[in-house]
């Protein structure tokens, strides 16, 4: 697959000027910058950063890619989820109704890989394109009104990517996303260390405990110590 490159360089080179300055600083796995992604290719990572940032754009809080969501998705696709650990994969495969759910004949990693390739071919200007174009394409994908070819239904592809992006923004930072508790800080979720027996009936009182993740070390941001392999799931 020949994907020996710096992930920082890949992610830095992908979007508009404003995000460009922020990315190298906020990128989640600075310590792993010299290592390749586990699963994604350069083009896929670029595409995903554009796509995820359309779903969760930067405002007062980081965008999806700034919060490490591309790293999160990379790990998910490389791990059991991407390989179909949570799916019944016995054939035959038929197109079903929406009510019958996921009927794609590919495990998620391969589905997303082929889906991104088909979408990039249909919309070559997407990654790095302007906001209007990205919004338009993402909307059409979410409505299932993009033809990606047989076996690659558009709406399930969108659902898969949106669930991953959303999960990456809010899952425990040990999975590579939610960097520096970006998602938890945004909503005010205190995290995995949860003991509210004295407080649940204190009405309308803020609980401003800074978030603590599963691997929280006082003073750190809850991601895995560099050099350790992040959690795959």
């Amino acid at each position: 697959m020949g994907q020996e490159f710096s992930r920082r360089a890949v992610l830095a080179g992908l979007t508009s000027g404003a995000a460009l300055a922020a990315l190298p600083v906020n990128h989640a796995f600075a310590a792993l910058d010299d290592k390749p992604f586990y699963f994604l290719t350069r083009d896929e990572a670029r595409f995903l950063a554009s796509f995820c940032d359309t779903l969760i754009p930067e405002d007062e809080y980081p965008s999806a890619s700034q919060a490490g969501v591309v790293d999160f998705i990379d790990l998910q696709l490389a791990g059991p989820y991407g390989k179909g650990r949570y799916l019944y994969m016995q054939g035959p495969f038929f197109e079903g109704t929406e009510q019958q759910g996921y009927q794609v004949s590919l495990p998620p990693a391969e589905f997303i890989r082929q889906g991104i390739a088909a979408l990039a071919e249909a919309e070559p200007r997407f990654a790095g394109g302007d906001d209007g174009l990205r919004l338009l394409v993402t909307t059409r994908l979410s409505e299932g009104s993009v033809d990606l070819g047989s076996g690659l239904p558009a709406k399930p592809l969108f659902d898969e990517l949106w669930t991953l992006t959303n999960s990456g923004y809010f899952a425990d930072p040990m999975y590579g996303g939610n960097k520096s508790y970006a998602g938890w800080e945004m909503v005010g979720f205190p995290g995995a260390h949860a003991y509210y027996l004295s407080f649940v009936d204190q009405h309308n009182v803020p609980y401003p405990q800074p978030p603590m993740g599963i691997n929280h070390q006082p003073g750190r941001d809850g991601s895995m110590p560099s050099g350790l392999k992040p959690q795959e799931l």
Partner: peptide, 9 residues
């Protein structure tokens, strides 16, 4: 807890 408090997993 805290390992059990893993929403993703």
């Amino acid at each position: 807890a805290p390992e059990e408090h893993d929403e993703l997993k």
